[in-house]
Every structure is written in C-alpha cells, then in structure tokens.
C-alpha cells in the first residue's frame, strides 16, 4: 500500500537539473577534477579547516611578503563545491594585499563559484574563505 502511494506521488515531484539549479557546471567540475594550486608550497602560514559533519577538509598554505600573498596553495578533499572553491580562491588571492583578502565577503565567493548556493551547501562553499581567512589571521598573529 505504502509503496503504491510513493510510486504514484513520486511522479509529481519535480526532478532533474534546471539550468539555474545546476551546481555541477563545467567550471566547477573542471576545478574539481583538475584543481589549481594543489599541493604544499613553501609557506609562512598554513592552517587546516574542516566541516566536521560532512568531512570536507582543506589545508591552506600562504607565502606572504610585504603584506602581499606571494603564493597560495592547498591540499585536502571533499565535495566538488568545497574543492572547486579553494582551487578558485587560491587563484584569486595570489598577488592580493592581505587587507583586501580580508575584505572578501561570502557573496563574493558565491559570485566566484557562479552557481546558486542552497542552504545545505553554504558550508561547502564557504570553507575555502574560512581557511584563507584563518591562514591570514594566523600570519598576522605571528608577525605583529
């Protein structure tokens, strides 16, 4: 009886990916499969951040000189959104002044990813920014 009910009603649920909802766009999958800046580099600040409930994990390495991000890289694993996010963000912050890095907002990350971030994926999307911010803070504490 229950099975019949579910079969009958499952047809009414809208399924599949609309263009707007598709979070697995080409650029996300590209960065996920072929991440930029992956691997440990020579650094003077590094930090590991995780989403404990889902297991996404990012370690960020920053080489900062004269308040500028000379080089940035990461290691880690997790879902496509979290890993593509840090791949893109390490690209973005290279050469940036750390004061500008600190001004990066959550919305900037959503824009950078170019996909619609739903509530359950917010933490995946923002793990990269959390890690970069922690690494910058870490550097400032040690050098001021």
């Amino acid at each position: 009886m229950n099975a019949e009910y579910f079969m009958k009603h499952s047809g009414e649920i809208e399924t599949g990916l609309s263009e707007e909802d598709n979070i697995y766009k080409e650029n996300i999958l590209d960065h996920y499969k072929n991440p930029h800046n992956k691997g440990e580099i020579k650094h003077n600040s590094s930090i590991r951040e995780l989403n404990p409930t889902c297991g996404d994990e990012i370690t960020v390495f920053l080489e900062i000189k004269d308040s500028k991000v000379k080089d940035a890289s990461f290691t880690g694993h997790g879902c496509a959104i979290s890993q593509a996010g840090i791949s893109m963000l390490t690209d973005k912050i290279k050469g940036m002044n750390i004061n500008d890095v600190k001004k990066i907002k959550n919305e900037d990350i959503y824009k950078m990813l170019g996909i619609k971030i739903t509530v359950p994926r917010i933490r995946c999307a923002l793990l990269s920014l959390k890690a970069v911010n922690s690494a910058v803070k870490n550097y400032e504490i040690r050098n001021n």
Partner: peptide
C-alpha cells in the same frame, strides 16, 4: 572514484532518491 559521496547524494536527491552520504560516524574506517 572521482565523486565525493555528498555530490552523489545531492544528485540522487534531485531524482527523488534519498540516501545518506558521508563518513557515517566512522572516520577511522574511511
């Protein structure tokens, strides 16, 4: 291989299939 369980479960969810994805409270086993 090449797909994180959360991406698998999200895509299955979009087809109306409910599964659990993650380390299921067994991180050392994973």
């Amino acid at each position: 291989d090449g797909m994180h369980p959360h991406d698998v479960s999200e895509l299955l969810d979009r087809e109306g299939v409910a599964v659990r994805g993650g380390h299921h409270c067994c991180m050392p086993l994973m």
